[in-house]
Amino acid sequence: MPMTLITGLMALAFCTVHLFVGKLRFLERTPRSKWLSFAGGVAVGYVFLHILPELGAHATTFGRETQLAAVIAESWVYTLSLAGLVLFYGLERALAVSRDERMTNEGRDRPHRGIFWVHIGASGLLMLMIAYLLNHREDSGTAGLVLYFAAMMLHFVTADFGTRSDHPELYDRRGRWILAVATLGGWALGLLVDLPEIVIACLFAFVAGGIVLLVLKEELPEERKSYFLPFLGGVALYAVLVLGEIHLVVT
């Protein structure tokens, strides 16, 4: 099967999460659904076993393209990653503050529309970059692509579920469609535009910071009452798959 078709099907699968996460009623539980804790574990495993090592590889690319010393190139790449984390942390805080203000002043447990749409726009940009990287990853192997896809699918479930919980009406009416279009647009852009390696390195670093923040935000806060064993199971399963992939490549 052509790789273009495979990545296209993966992008469509991402879109199904954006469009139909509201139908997954079993996730809407207190305490938190065990499936969300499992998905969070997989996403955390992805952060430590794929994102951090790939950041190192992209730092090498950045240093080669810019002729900077290795330590300086690495610092710039991790600074871009930090910028992605800080941006999404700022958006999450703005949502929380807006939600608290409306709850105090109007008795409505919803953020202001403007803040929500800014958050959707930033999330759409993140989805576009993630889908673009389906066709432009440092690890071009099939096994690595499948692991990337699986981790991102589960990450989208937790991230979209959290975004939808902020404003279900706006998410269902337009927000989910914006995310789906951004995802397909990113995949198509990956086919049509072949960016220089240094730009891809910068994109990945920025995306990595956003993913790290969203993973930690969705899984770790105490009020979410997460389940540890499903979380551990997700981490362990992903670690076994990654180590198995590495073993196959080496041997």
Results as ranks from 00 to 15, higher is better:
M152V: 10
V199R: 02
G185Y: 10
P111T: 02
F48Y: 07
L12N: 07
R102Y: 07
L128R: 03
Y78S: 06
A151T: 02
M10C: 15
L134S: 08
P221H: 00
L220H: 04
T142D: 11
V21M: 03
G63D: 10
I51A: 03
T251N: 15
S98H: 03
L80V: 11
F204V: 06
I115E: 00
F116S: 00
R93E: 06
A59Y: 08
R64N: 12
G45Q: 03
L147P: 06
L243K: 14
E92P: 02
P31K: 05
L203W: 03
L82T: 09
A151V: 01
R64F: 04
A182E: 02
V212K: 08
H119G: 12
T61Q: 06
G56S: 04
D172K: 14
L189G: 02
R174G: 05
L55T: 10
P53D: 07
A13F: 10
F116N: 01
I200R: 10
T61V: 15
V181R: 04
I246K: 15
I72G: 08
K225F: 14
L232K: 01
V17I: 13
A43D: 00
Y238R: 07
A143Q: 14
E169Q: 12
M153I: 02
F206I: 09
I130T: 14
H18W: 07
F206V: 04
G186I: 01
F116M: 04
H112D: 13
G90D: 00
T142K: 08
G234C: 00
G41P: 00
L145A: 09
V17Q: 04
V97A: 11
Y89W: 14
L232F: 12
G190P: 01
F228A: 13
G209T: 06
Q67K: 13
E65N: 05
R174H: 09
R176K: 14
I178V: 15
L232D: 05
T163L: 14
